[in-house]
Write a protein that binds this DNA or RNA. Structure first.
Length: 561
RNA sequence: UGGGGCGUCGUCAAGUGGUAAGACACAGGAUUUUGGUUCCUGCAUUCGGAGGUUCGAAUCCUCCCGCCCCAGCCA
């Protein structure tokens, strides 16, 4: 076993002592009320990973007990995201709503045993009766209704004789419990809402605490893994199963949910970003959703690797975004073809290059992997280079193109600066004139002369226009939710999280690239063809992540000096 | 101020009485036709704090401090 964490320790021990006959059966139980995000990926990798490691099974179970917030769009997105991440639930696509009848019968059993009652207090009254953190609650006047009356009322609740909120079914536990969840928790409420799967079949719906443990039990789950905030619910989880005397009593184990710096992983807040138009949708490449990361160009493997590296523990933590970026670079570096594209084009004229000549130069598709072959890149008298690769008055440690300098054009020639042409009005650099050394074809100098920089470039007449979207972190602060003064998290939205550049110039091999295809633009970063907005006529690239950038660090250090 | 959890490097995280793994980040250096990659090197005499037990403590005990969760007919 590669990784060791407290959950795997528990399960290993259980398997060793043949608990559950040595069987391991987990489940991933999303509520279909939003899209999955990278925090869910942690749970998915954990639950499906455990099942795989211990040769067990993992169910996909939708926890769909609150029809007013759930819908099929979410169900479909969740299925496709889990699948995309590389996991398979076989024929075990399950729904808590499939157990509604069974759950109802369990509730009846609880009533018959005198462990549940129909309460007719209003929601506000129930809140008042619950007490506070320090004061015990008091018992509802309806708490001692007879079993017969409770059964009658509960049946009529099901039949639809009452309005929303008229009655609820409550467990009869202990109104003085120091654990508020044990103060007669609600088990069923009346909701005249159509359910995305059961339609109008039901007007009463079971609550999470009643549903979850029993669904686990029904499915034969051995280890029910959830996040820390459910730790308080565990006594209730166990209470329900114990009172009902079910055969299968899974063990609930809680771990800390993921927090990622410069992002937000609260479903409620992500919904807010989507509905408020702060992003273009759930799959906006700036979103930490699985669909957003996918559109951004992240690979399933990189996300799985990330989830392995962050580990599993019980302490609240904030994982550095840099780790996620490390994982995607690591994956893409090995697998992605190199290509040249100029984001902010600056025209360069090679004065001594024959006017109508075109040469095709050989370029490696991936220096990391010769098996990926080579391609021919056209070179001509007029080229584009990156604006930031020229400085008229070079700053310290800048060793790209500048007056008097010679640099290499990748896979092409050494070129030497001749003169700069500026806009008379603005003083802006509009064009460069250079000369090339024909003896350096391919990028090597026969006289062994060295050059300090290699630039990427594109032949102007052959270049293909493209739109490039530069994405950056969504928030300015590492933890936008933690600002104590009550500031709204949206205050810290990064105004530069998206920069759209157009027209950019990319090498001709890129025309017609299929949606979703990934490339490394040399010296810039990893990009993928946007699966939504790109078309045959229009190339659109999303920047997945930049390359590590030593030069950017030097510049930053110089600024701070 | 009730109850339940958690505190090990900047960030994650192993460690379960025998003398602080690993990863990311960071800092140097080597290689390099991507200021990329790769490769070396460095990076917690110390585990929230204070006492105690022990030959020996991050691990056991006591007290203290800090952070998170719970008062939905949400999950």
């Amino acid at each position: 076993m590669l990784s060791s964490d407290f959950i795997r320790n528990i399960i290993s021990r259980d398997v060793e002592v043949k608990k559950n006959q040595g069987r391991v059966h987990t489940r991933f139980p999303p509520e279909p009320n939003g899209y999955l995000h990278i925090g869910h990926a942690k749970s998915i990798c954990l639950n499906f990973g455990l099942a795989a490691e211990y040769e067990g099974l993992c169910n996909l179970r939708f926890d769909d007990t609150n029809p007013s917030k759930e819908n099929v769009e979410y169900v479909e997105s969740i299925k496709s995201d889990v699948k995309w991440l590389g996991f398979d639930w076989g024929d075990r696509e399950l729904y808590a709503s499939d157990y509604f009848e069974q759950l109802y019968q369990y509730a009846v059993q609880l009533i018959k045993e005198g462990r549940a009652y129909v309460d007719s207090l209003s929601a506000e009254e129930i809140r008042d009766y619950r007490g506070t953190l320090t004061d015990p609650g008091k018992e509802s006047p309806y708490r001692n209704r007879s079993v017969k009356e409770n059964i009658d009322l509960f049946e009529r609740m099901r039949r639809g004789e009452f309005k929303d909120g008229a009655h609820v079914l409550r467990a009869k536990i202990d109104m003085a419990s120091p654990n508020l969840l044990m103060r007669d928790p609600t088990l069923y409420r009346i909701r005249w809402v159509s359910h995305h799967r059961t339609g109008v079949q039901w007007c009463i719906y079971p609550m999470y605490d009643f549903t979850h443990c029993l669904s686990d039990s029904i499915e034969g789950i051995t280890h029910s893994i959830c996040t820390l905030e459910f730790e308080n619910n565990r006594p209730l989880y166990d209470w329900v199963l114990d009172e009902l005397g079910v055969d299968c009593h899974p063990q609930q184990i809680e771990f800390a949910r993921l927090n990622l710096s410069y992002y937000i992983l609260s479903k409620r807040k992500l919904v807010e970003l989507v509905t408020g138009g702060f992003v273009t949708g759930w799959d906006d490449p700036r979103m930490p959703t699985i669909s957003g990361l996918r559109r951004r160009g992240y690979t399933p493997g990189s996300i799985r690797s990330f989830c392995e590296r962050i580990g599993v523990a019980k302490r609240d933590s904030m994982v550095d975004l840099a780790l996620l970026e490390y994982c995607i670079r690591e994956d893409l570096n090995k697998s992605t073809p190199r290509v040249m594209g100029v984001l902010r084009p600056l025209r360069v004229i090679i004065d001594n290059y024959p006017k109508d000549q075109v040469e095709y130069l050989n370029a490696a598709n991936n220096p990391e992997d010769p098996a990926m072959g080579t391609r021919e890149v056209p070179f001509s008298r007029v080229l584009y280079i990156e604006k930031e690769d020229f400085q008229e008055i070079p700053q310290k440690k800048f060793f790209r193109l500048a007056p008097g300098r010679e640099v290499r054009l990748r896979y092409a020639y050494f070129i030497k600066f001749v003169r700069v042409v500026k806009d008379e009005q603005t003083g802006e650099v509009v064009e460069l004139h250079c000369t090339y050394d024909p003896k350096t074809r391919g990028g090597d100098s026969p006289d062994g002369r060295k050059v300090k920089a290699t630039l990427h470039w594109v032949s102007a007449p052959h270049a293909v226009a493209a739109e490039v979207r530069l994405y950056d972190r969504l928030f300015l602060r590492p933890n936008p939710e933690a600002e104590k003064d009550g500031t709204d998290f949206k205050t810290y939205l990064n105004p530069d999280s998206l920069k759209t550049l157009t027209p950019c110039r990319v090498e001709p091999t890129l025309s017609g690239s299929p949606p979703g295809s990934r490339f490394q633009f040399e010296r810039l970063g990893y990009f993928c063809v946007d699966p939504v907005d790109a078309s045959d006529e229009k190339l659109v690239f999303n920047r997945t992540v930049t390359l590590r950038d030593q030069w950017a660090k030097i510049q930053k250090a110089q600024q701070h000096r």
